[in-house]
Amino acid sequence: MTLADDRRIAPEQIAALHAECGDELRRLALGVLHDAHLAADVVQTTFAKAIELGHTAEESLRGWLFRVTLNEALALRRRQGVQARALDKLAWLRRGDNEQGDCELPDVAIGRREEQERVRAELQMLPSEQRQVVWMRLYEQKTFAVIAGELNVPLGTVLWRMQAAIKKLRRRLQMEE
C-alpha cells in the first residue's frame, strides 16, 4: 500500500457521503444538464474522483463534492454541445423522478410520497393567483412571458407570484425535513 493509498478516503466514508448528499449532487447535475442519465453519470464520476482525490480537498468534503459535480456537469454539457431541446422542456424533471422511483428503497419511496403530500397541502393553501402561476409554469410548461400574456399581467407580477409560491413551498418542505 502506497502513501497515497493511506491518505485516501475510506470506502465507508465515501459510502456515508453518497448516502448523505448523493441525491443532492444528482439534482445539482440535473439542474445543469437537464438529463437524468447524464446527471447520474456525473455523480458516479464525482465519487470516483472522491476516492482518488478527495483527500486533497481544501474545503469541506461536502463542498468539494458539490464543486466537482458542478464542474463535471458543466464540462459534460460543453462536450455535449448545445443542450438538446425536447418538446417537453420539463421532461427531465419527470423522467428523473420516474427513473429514480424504479430503484429507490421503500422507505425512500414513502418519504417521497410524504413530500408530495406536504406539497399538495401547501398548494391548496396558496393564493389562487400564485397557485395558477405554479400550475401554468410547472404543469402546462408555459414560460413566464407566456403566462404574463395570458393572464394579462406584467411579467414582474408573474415572477413575484412564482417567487412567493416557491418560498412557501420550500419552507413547507424544509420544515418537515
Binding site: 423522478d97 417521497r112 406539497v119 416557491i166
Partner: peptide, 9 residues
C-alpha cells in the same frame, strides 16, 4: 422543489 411540485401536479 421543481421535481416534487411537478410530480404532485
Amino acid at each position: 422543489l421543481c421535481e416534487t411540485v411537478t410530480a404532485t401536479l
